[in-house]
Amino acid sequence: TTLHFDLDGKKLQYTGVSEEIARLVEELKRRGVDLKEIVRILEELLK
Rank of each mutant, 00 (worst) to 15 (best):
E44R: 09
F5L: 05
D34M: 10
V25I: 09
D6R: 00
L3N: 01
K10E: 14
T15P: 10
D34A: 12
V39N: 01
L12D: 01
E20D: 13
L3R: 00
V17W: 00
E37W: 06
D8P: 02
V33A: 08
R30N: 15
E20A: 10
L12H: 07
I21C: 04
R40L: 10
R31K: 13
V39Q: 03
Y14Q: 00
I21L: 09
G32F: 07
L28K: 09
L45N: 10
E44A: 12
T1W: 04
R31L: 13
D34F: 06
D8C: 05
E43C: 02
V25F: 03
L7V: 14
L45R: 11
L42H: 00
V33S: 08
D34I: 11
R40H: 13
G9Q: 02
R30D: 12
G32I: 06
G9R: 00
I41P: 00
T1E: 13
L3E: 02
L24R: 14
Q13S: 14
E43D: 15
F5W: 01
K11S: 11
T15W: 05
I21S: 06
G32H: 13
T1L: 15
V25Q: 01
G16Y: 05
G32T: 06
E43Y: 02
V39H: 03
Y14G: 01
L45I: 10
G32N: 15
V25R: 00
S18D: 06
E43G: 05
V25Y: 03
L45T: 12
E20G: 08
L28N: 08
L42N: 00
L42D: 00
R31Y: 07
V39K: 02
K10D: 10
G16H: 12
D34Y: 06
V39W: 02
K10L: 13
E20P: 12
L35I: 14
V17C: 02
E27Q: 11
L28F: 08
L12I: 13
H4C: 08
I21K: 03
R23M: 14
S18N: 08
E20N: 07
K36W: 12
D34C: 13
G32P: 04
K11I: 04
T1C: 03
K11W: 07
Y14D: 00
S18F: 03
L35D: 12
L45P: 03
G16N: 15
R23V: 13
K11G: 06
T1M: 14
K29Q: 12
K47S: 13
E27L: 07
L28V: 05
F5G: 01
E26T: 09
E19C: 03
K47A: 13
D34R: 07
K47V: 12
E26H: 13
E44Q: 12
V17T: 02
E26V: 09
D34G: 08
R31C: 11
E27D: 15
E43P: 02
E27G: 08
A22Y: 10
K36Y: 13
L3G: 01
E20T: 08
S18H: 06
K29T: 11
L24F: 13
E19D: 14
V25L: 06
K10T: 13
H4N: 11
D34N: 12
K36E: 10
V39A: 03
R30I: 14
L12E: 03
H4E: 15
I38F: 01
E44D: 13
L12K: 05
V17M: 03
H4F: 14
E19F: 10
I38V: 14
V39M: 04
K29S: 11
G9F: 01
R30V: 15
T15Y: 08
S18C: 03
A22V: 15
V25S: 03
E43N: 09
E27T: 09
D8E: 10
D8G: 06
H4D: 15
G32L: 11
Y14S: 00
R23K: 13
K29P: 04
L42Y: 01
D6Y: 12
L24G: 13
K29G: 11
V39T: 03
L24D: 14
D6P: 00
K36G: 10
R31Q: 15
G16E: 10
R31A: 14
L12P: 01
V17D: 01
T15G: 07
G32Y: 07
D34K: 09
G16A: 05
I38S: 01
A22I: 11
E20Q: 09
K47Y: 12
F5R: 00
K47H: 13
A22K: 06
R31G: 13
S18K: 06
V33R: 07
R40D: 11
K36I: 10
G9T: 02
R30M: 14
A22S: 09
I41F: 08
K47L: 13
L46A: 03
L3I: 15
L45D: 05
L3D: 02
V17I: 10
K10H: 12
I21W: 05
I21T: 11
E37I: 10
L42Q: 00
D34Q: 11
K47P: 10
D6T: 06
R30S: 14
V17Y: 00
T2S: 10
T1H: 15
E20H: 08
I38P: 00
K10P: 02
S18E: 05
G32W: 05
E43K: 03
I38R: 03
V33T: 13
K11N: 09
L46V: 06
V17P: 01
E20I: 05
Q13R: 07
I38W: 01
D6F: 09
L35T: 15
V17R: 00
S18L: 04
L3W: 00
E26G: 11
I41M: 10
G9N: 03
E43Q: 05
I41D: 04
T2E: 11
L45Y: 08
G32Q: 14
G16D: 12
E37P: 03
K11L: 04
I21Y: 06
E37M: 09
L46P: 03
L28W: 08
E19Q: 12
K29I: 14
Q13M: 14
T2Q: 05
L42P: 00
I38M: 04
Q13H: 15
R40K: 12
G9M: 01
I38G: 00
K36F: 11
T1F: 11
D6G: 01
T2N: 13
G16R: 04
D6L: 07
R40C: 06
G16S: 05
E27K: 07
S18P: 15
E26D: 14
R31S: 12
R23Y: 13
D8H: 03
G32A: 13
L35Y: 05
G9P: 00
T15E: 15
K29W: 10
Y14W: 06
A22Q: 08
V25C: 04
L46F: 05
E37K: 09
K10A: 10
L28Q: 09
L12Q: 04
D34E: 14
K47D: 11
L12V: 15
R23Q: 15
D8V: 02
